[in-house]
Amino acid sequence: MAAAFGSAQEVAALVAQGEDVDALYDGSTALWRAVYVRNFDSVEVLLAAGADPALPMMSGWSPARLSLATERPLATDEVLTPRELAAVEERDRLVAAVGRFPAGDGFSIACVAGIDAHEAARRLKAYVVPDDERPDVTNWTWDDEPFGDDSELAVGVTDVPGGCVLMQPWYYNAATPVVANLLSAGTVVYAMYANPKSGNQGRIARDGQVVAWDPHPGGSANADDTTLEVLLAHLYAGKAVAYCCAYVGLRPENTKAFTEPDQWLLLPDRDYWRA
Rank of each mutant, 00 (worst) to 15 (best):
T138S: 15
A117L: 01
R122G: 14
G114C: 10
A120I: 04
G163N: 09
A110Y: 06
A121V: 04
I115Q: 09
A180P: 01
D116C: 02
A174M: 03
A110S: 15
A117Q: 04
L182C: 14
A154C: 04
L183M: 12
F147H: 03
G106N: 07
V112Q: 08
T138P: 01
Y171D: 15
G114V: 01
D131E: 15
K125P: 04
V137E: 07
M192R: 02
R123L: 14
D149G: 01
P169V: 04
F101M: 00
Y190L: 11
T176A: 09
W142G: 11
V165Y: 00
N181I: 07
L183W: 12
V112T: 13
W142L: 14
V179T: 14
G114D: 10
W140V: 04
R123S: 14
T187L: 11
A110P: 14
P146C: 11
L182S: 13
D144R: 02
D150E: 10
V129D: 03
R134N: 07
G156N: 00
P102M: 05
P130L: 09
G106A: 05
H118Y: 07
T176H: 05
G162L: 06
Q168G: 12
A110L: 01
V98M: 03
E133V: 05
A191L: 09
S184H: 12
W142D: 13
I115S: 11
M192E: 08
W140Q: 09
A120R: 01
V179Y: 09
V188M: 14
R122S: 15
Q168I: 00
E145D: 10
R123A: 13
D116Y: 02
Y127C: 10
S108A: 15
V179W: 07
D132C: 11
A191P: 11
L124H: 12
D150S: 08
M167W: 05
L166Y: 01
G106I: 04
E145I: 06
V155P: 14
E119L: 12
V179I: 12
G186K: 06
S184Q: 13
V157L: 08
D116V: 00
P177Y: 07
A154Y: 00
